[in-house]
Computed example of a mutant assay.
Amino acid sequence: MYSNSFSVRPLGGVFGADVTGMDLSVPPPPAVSAALSAAVSRYGLLVFRSPRASAQGIAGLMCTFGALQRTLYVDTLRNQSAEEAACARPEECIAMMTDPLASVARSHVALLHAEEAPFGGESIWCSLADAYDGISRPMRAYLDPLEVASSSRAGFPRSLVASHPLTERRHLGIGVSFEGRVLNVPAEEGDLVVRLVQNLLAAPENQIRIPWTRGMIVLWDCRLAQHYPVGGYGAPGWRLRCLSACDAVADPPAAPLRME
C-alpha cells in the first residue's frame, strides 16, 4: 500500500521547499503527483532529503510533467566506457538538458538524484522569478515586450519575460548561460539587457546554495530556476542521474534528442 504522508516546508531563502516523508520507491499515485506538481510550480524547487526512491518511481513522477523525457547518468566511481566518456563535462550536458532555451525540446521540469555524492559537493539554483521581481517597474515595462533568439535555436524567437502557465507568475525567460541576441534593438543595447539579466541572476539574494548528501533528490521547474553545479560533476565520488521532461504536445521537438 502506498504511503503519501509527506510534508512540504518552505526553505529559509528566497525560494524552494523541503519535502519529507516522500515515497518514490514506486510511481506515485495521481493525487501525490498533482500535489508535487503544484508545489514545484509554487516554490520553484523541491528538495527531497532522504526519500525512499527507485528508478521506476522517479520515472513515474517525471511522467507527470511531460511525455518527452531525457536522461543522463554520471558515474565517477568507476572507469567510464567510451560512450559515457563522450560527455567529458557532464555539467554542460545537464545544462543543455535543463536550460529551456538550450535545446530544441524545451525542458519544463528537471530532477537530479544523487545516488552517491562526494563530501563538499554543492549546487546553486538561481530564481528567474525572484530576479524579475527585483526589477523596477519602469524597467519591467521596457523588458516585458522584448524577444530573444538563442544561438542554439537559430532564428526561433522567445519572450525575454514570460508568465508561468500554472501560476501566471512573471519570470525571466533566459538564464546566466544564455548565448544569443535580443531582437529588434541595437546590438549594443541588447548586450546591456543580457548583461543586466545575468547580473541579477548572479546576485546572492536571488540564489540558493544546497549541499548534496547521499540519496538526495532535487526537483525544479526550469522556467523558474536555473541550476549551476559548484565545481562540476567530473570529480570522483559522483553517481548521479539527471532527468528532464517537457510537454511534447505543447512544445513538440523538431528532432529526437538522445542522451543515454
Rank of each mutant, 00 (worst) to 15 (best):
M1Q: 09
S7C: 11
R9F: 03
V14H: 08
F15L: 09
G16K: 01
A17S: 08
A17V: 03
D23W: 00
L24H: 02
S25A: 13
P28A: 04
P28V: 01
S33P: 02
A34K: 14
A34F: 14
A35N: 04
L36T: 00
Y43N: 08
L46D: 02
V47F: 01
S54A: 08
A55D: 15
I58S: 08
I58H: 09
I58D: 07
M62Y: 12
T64Y: 11
R70Y: 01
D75L: 03
D75M: 02
L77C: 13
A85P: 01
C87W: 10
A88K: 08
P90G: 02
E91P: 00
E92N: 08
I94A: 09
A95V: 02
S103C: 05
V104R: 13
V104L: 11
A105F: 01
S107P: 05
A110Q: 11
L112P: 05
H113Q: 12
P118H: 00
E122Y: 09
E122D: 10
S123G: 13
I124V: 15
W125R: 02
W125G: 03
C126E: 08
S127Q: 06
D130N: 15
S136I: 10
P138C: 04
A141N: 13
L143H: 03
A149R: 05
S150A: 14
R153P: 00
G155C: 10
R158D: 11
R158V: 07
V161R: 05
V161E: 07
A162F: 11
T167R: 09
R170C: 06
R170H: 11
H171P: 04
L172N: 01
G175Q: 03
S177F: 10
E179T: 07
R181I: 12
D191K: 14
L196M: 14
L200C: 13
L200E: 13
A203Y: 10
A203I: 06
A203V: 04
P204V: 15
P204S: 15
E205S: 14
N206E: 09
N206S: 10
Q207R: 14
Q207D: 06
I210P: 03
P211M: 07
R214F: 09
I217Y: 01
V218C: 14
W220L: 11
Q226W: 02
H227P: 04
P229H: 04
G232Y: 06
Y233L: 08
G234M: 05
A235D: 10
R239N: 10
R241A: 13
C242K: 07
D247I: 06
A250D: 08
D251S: 08
A254K: 11
R258Q: 10
R258C: 13
